[in-house]
Design a protein around this nucleic acid. Structure first.
Lengths: 232, 232
DNA sequence: CTTACAACTTTTGTCGACACAAAAAATACA
DNA sequence: TGTATTTTTTGTGTCGACAAAAGTTGTAAG
């Protein structure tokens, strides 16, 4: 567990940010499972600061929907909404398509290098059969594509969806096999080629197929393991 | 100016929310022009509360991008980004299309009545030639369509774009003529009909044409009046 | 007259304390 | 023994105060 040094006087204004980043990471990694109540006082003690910056971090997380504030009571880690997963699949498919299209049409000199760097990291994670690293590097790959599209609205929604997907995948990461991920590597390569060729139609088609692949795999993992989302 | 009653003891937990709502309204109405610094102490005095709930409201607004926090200095009303307006037009066109499609395919019994109620309000605003009311009721009309689609990701982005558009339109509301708005009323009626008929393709086409209309009008208004966005 | 430095002012970031609300525990009663 | 009511506990929402950082003013030297 990351414990900030006691004596280290942190810079003014960095308190809320560091709590925000750390909590965000732990929520997306499922270190904090959904529904877990978050105690402001405990956090304040853990990070060696007062409740004020902790509260600011929680307000920001609530704005992103990662935590839910129950008035006068607790704030808890927002539960994954299994009942509306189809809206998530629908949205991430659209965002994969839109951002990849824009990357193909609008990317600028340095962009491809950044995307390729992420792809190298993803390929390495697949080779190492490191499911956690796959999830993280896959997110960065698509984030780089979204950044190359230079539409902040799309980019923001895409990042949010990628993070939510990261959380979802973590729930099932143990059941990853290594066959599909290798297909993902090839699909990524094709997408890069389409972006470089500025072939918007091809980029769109590849992004859609790629999204269908991932959605299909998540669906398979969920149907394989129903016990998680039966209400008690 | 809305002055909360001094003696009225507000409910615990309502402080930050009311400040948030009021500031949000004033920013979108351009009562607070872009770049205006927001003073926490002034706000605290104006709302008769301490700085803590005011700060919470500002953090939430910063999360939505409506204000920008300059570390250790002031927080200011976020400036409208005229350089990237095309990304706004692109995104709102897509969101009009996606939400109208979803409303056509997935709307449920009560949804159409809600949409029609908003359309009645919009038509009345057009009849009254009340540009400010047009802007507000148009937003509610499309928000109702987005709600009928029942995809929170799309709905959230659509609302954000509608709010940003509301701000943009306010900048130019004086140059509204009454010809185009009446076309909007007819276009809205057609969209409602397509949604009711569950004709997804038609809903998509109408939404796209409607978005093009609005984008075209905004572009016209901007080109008519260049002086606003020349850097000084 | 301009510029560099110092004291002052303003406003934010953080803190500890207190009040209030809701859940949990304890008690009374049937 | 089970249920209703009171008490206690826990933890949030709000407050006033203090300290650090950036801007501002004033002063003096070049």
């Amino acid at each position: 567990m990351a414990m900030p040094d006691k004596g280290a006087e942190r810079k003014r204004g960095s308190g809320a940010i560091s709590v925000y980043n750390e909590l965000r990471r732990e929520i997306l990694d499922l270190t904090l499972e959904q529904g877990r109540p978050i105690d402001e006082i405990q956090l304040a003690e853990r990070f060696r600061m007062s409740r004020t910056p902790v509260r600011e971090a929680l307000v920001r997380l609530a704005g992103e929907g990662l935590v839910t504030t129950l008035p006068n009571r607790a704030t808890v880690v927002t539960a994954i909404d299994f009942l509306n997963l189809h809206t998530f699949f629908d949205a991430i498919t659209l965002m994969y398509r839109v951002t990849t299209r824009l990357a193909a049409s609008d990317h600028r000199p340095g962009d491809l290098a950044l995307i390729r760097a992420r792809q190298v990291e993803f390929a390495r994670a697949v080779e190492d059969q490191d499911a956690l690293a796959m999830i993280a590097t896959n997110r960065e790959f698509h984030a780089a594509i979204a950044a190359a599209g230079r539409n902040h609205y799309y980019e923001a929604l895409c990042l949010r969806l990628l993070d939510e997907g990261r959380r979802l995948l973590r729930l099932y990461y143990s059941s990853f096999d290594d066959r599909l991920p290798h297909e993902y590597v090839l699909e990524h390569e094709d997408m890069i080629a389409a972006i470089e060729a500025r072939d918007v139609a091809e980029a769109d088609a590849l992004a859609r197929a790629h999204a269908d692949q991932i959605v299909g795999q998540i669906r398979t993992m969920i149907s394989r393991d129903q016990r998680h989302h039966i209400a008690l």
